[in-house]
Simulated scan of single mutants.
Amino acid sequence: MHEIDTAAVFLLVGGDVLEVRWEMRGLNEWLGVGLFIAGDLPASDPDDFVDVSGLPEWHPLLGVPIVGAARSSHVPNEGCPDEVWALRLDFSSGASAVLALGEMVDGHLGYLPDSLVAIFDEAEARNYRLPSSRQSAWCESVAEVPRDRDLG
Score class of each variant (00 low, 15 high):
Y128H: 04
V52S: 04
S72K: 04
S115Y: 03
E140F: 11
W138T: 01
L11Q: 12
F49A: 12
C139N: 01
G34A: 14
S93M: 06
P42S: 06
P42Y: 04
N77E: 09
P76W: 14
D148I: 06
H2G: 12
L31P: 06
Y111R: 02
R134W: 12
V67K: 11
D121H: 10
N28H: 14
L27P: 13
E83M: 11
N77Y: 13
A7G: 15
R21Y: 15
D45A: 09
D16M: 01
L62A: 14
G110L: 07
A123P: 07
P65Q: 05
V52F: 02
A69G: 11
S141W: 10
G15T: 02
W30V: 05
L35C: 10
A97H: 03
A123K: 13
P65G: 00
F91C: 05
E29I: 05
V64Q: 07
D40P: 03
G94D: 09
L89Y: 03
S92Q: 06
A69Q: 04
W22C: 14
D106M: 04
P113D: 15
A86D: 05
F10N: 00
G34S: 14
V13D: 15
W22F: 13
P131M: 02
S96E: 00
E122S: 09
E124H: 12
H108R: 04
L116M: 09
P113Y: 07
P113S: 05
L109N: 13
L101M: 14
H59S: 15
S93N: 06
L116E: 07
A100P: 02
R21L: 11
D90W: 00
G68N: 07
N127H: 10
P146I: 01
V84N: 11
G110H: 11
V9W: 03
L35M: 10
E124I: 15
R147G: 01
A123E: 09
D148C: 08
A8P: 03
E23I: 01
S115K: 03
A70L: 12
S115H: 13
S132I: 01
V33Q: 13
S93I: 01
S133T: 02
A125M: 09
A123R: 14
Y111S: 03
S96C: 08
M104T: 09
A143G: 00
V50D: 08
V20I: 13
A137G: 06
E19W: 02
R147F: 11
I37V: 05
V84Y: 05
P46A: 12
P42I: 06
M24I: 13
D150T: 04
V50C: 14
L55R: 10
L18E: 03
L18K: 06
D16H: 13
L55D: 06
P56K: 07
D47C: 13
R71H: 15
W58A: 08
F36L: 00
N127W: 00
S44M: 06
L109S: 00
W22A: 10
M104D: 10
S72Q: 01
L62I: 12
R134L: 09
A69I: 12
N127L: 02
G68K: 01
D47I: 07
S115Q: 14
D121E: 14
L11K: 14
A8C: 10
N28G: 10
G34H: 12
Y111V: 01
C139K: 07
V50S: 12
L99Y: 14
A95K: 02
L12H: 05
R88T: 08
E3W: 06
L101D: 05
L12S: 08
D47W: 09
I37L: 10
L109F: 15
